[in-house]
Design a protein around this nucleic acid. Structure first.
Lengths: 245, 245
DNA sequence: GTCAATCCTTTGTCCTGACATTTGAACATC
DNA sequence: GATGTTCAAATGTCAGGACAAAGGATTGAC
């Protein structure tokens, strides 16, 4: 009892056909029209019904498999993956994260100024040590409660203004400036809060904090952002999905 | 000045051609025969030279792009990705992690017994609440120093013995029993150590600890392992790569 | 009834061929 | 010399076909 999904294709659109198909199926999974475990038509039938070639249909399905939405088994068919394995690892900023989970993010820019690059910053951003970079320190709040202190270092030519940062996520602003983060290396650790940190975050002195250090790169591998952040462990966890190779 | 790589193909092998090609190129990148930024031949030439079709060559290159080894640009060509964006996110156990970075892992099994499943464990492993599961608690050490206390819950039929656990990684043992972890959801947080935890880990009381909670699934989405772990923040960090969608 | 062999369905791999789109450089023009 | 145009090179998209391999169900033999 395979589900035949209605999919409208626009052959004059610049969006590739396989992507239109993938998006349509993904949407059906997302809004519940297709349930976990439910089988799709086989790919030959799908291609015939939509008037596309089998490779095109395959490419659409393959994309969804790689994103963890579908599971395929040779000789069996293609079915929707269980809901709990569907969430992807993604490179997002905390601002986007909070919006998606329904909490109201707000930001207070504590500091924004030019500083000489430390060795660590210089290496991440590929600039000479001691050259000028912009340091931004923000207090991130969720529903009015302090959540994290975010410290970012950026090359001067793409660093957003303090005003922009008050209402927009950093990554959105970077993208608007043409710097598109594609990959990031992230290191998560923990330590006790200093007195000053505890005060800003409204925690007790020496409370456990989560620390995160991240370098973001564009797709040519050039560093575009380096950040050292601290989070209130009592209010925040990092939630990721891992895949076996 | 594109690099022409010598690649031997075995058409009688059960290993797909595109995979043979991808593996060969990957090996060349890994051992330095191809340097970051260096261009490959264009895909048409590559296909012709190897005597394979262009789609097959493309599939090999596409695989490497998805793994972050290569970067492609339409109208330009295909080149090797910068070294620092190459490391993948992978689902590994701490045992494998330590071996790879050259530290000597050792394990002490503190406890191994059957316990009734708590609500949390029951949900992760898809068993009735209160049914019997095996709880394993291990002290993980690196170079003789305590590093983490790992607490795992497993279905009784795949739970390894205490003896096996003393010298092997948990994931290796699970794989040998036919339970292949494919995806895992992982939550990383922090908190202060209790007195007992501090004692075991040789930390000061109330020292900051990293906590990690992980549920691993096979490719049908069935839970095969649930773990709650604590790490010495002074000796360990989680290091991951993230990719933008 | 049990077990093995066979067949069908479905995805996996591989081929050939064609046109579209993007990029960068060479070229011509003003 | 600056600027716009054209062109070649490279990857992206799409079509249609063929055979292989795996899994499940059916069938047959004992």
């Amino acid at each position: 009892m395979p589900q035949t999904l209605r999919i409208d294709l626009d052959r004059s659109s610049p969006v590739p056909l396989y992507h239109q198909v993938a998006t349509a199926i993904d949407a059906a999974i997302e809004d519940g029209r297709m349930q976990p475990g439910e089988f799709l038509e086989n790919e030959v039938a799908l291609a015939a019904r939509l008037g596309i070639s089998r490779p095109t249909a395959r490419q659409a399905l393959q994309d969804l498999v790689e994103r963890g939405r579908l599971v395929r088994q040779r000789g069996v068919g293609t079915h929707v993956a269980p809901a709990r394995v569907r969430r992807p690892v993604e490179l997002t900023s905390l601002h986007d994260d909070l919006s998606k989970t329904g909490r109201k993010p707000s930001t207070e820019v504590l500091e924004r100024r030019a500083v000489p690059a430390s060795a660590e910053v210089a290496e991440a951003l590929e600039v000479p040590e001691g050259s000028e970079v912009v340091m931004i320190r923000r207090l991130r709040m969720a529903d009015g409660e302090p959540l994290a202190v975010l410290t970012n270092y950026l090359p001067p030519d793409i660093a957003p203004s303090a005003e922009d940062l008050a209402s927009n996520g950093l990554y959105d602003l970077l993208r608007a400036r043409g710097a598109k983060p594609k990959v990031a290396r992230q290191r998560i650790g923990a330590r006790s809060a200093t007195a000053a940190e505890a005060r800003v975050l409204e925690e007790k002195p020496r409370a456990a904090l989560l620390t995160m250090e991240r370098t973001a790169y564009d797709d040519n591998g050039h560093g575009i952002e380096f950040g050292q952040h601290i989070y209130r462990a009592s209010r925040y966890m990092f939630d990721t999905m891992l895949f076996a190779s």
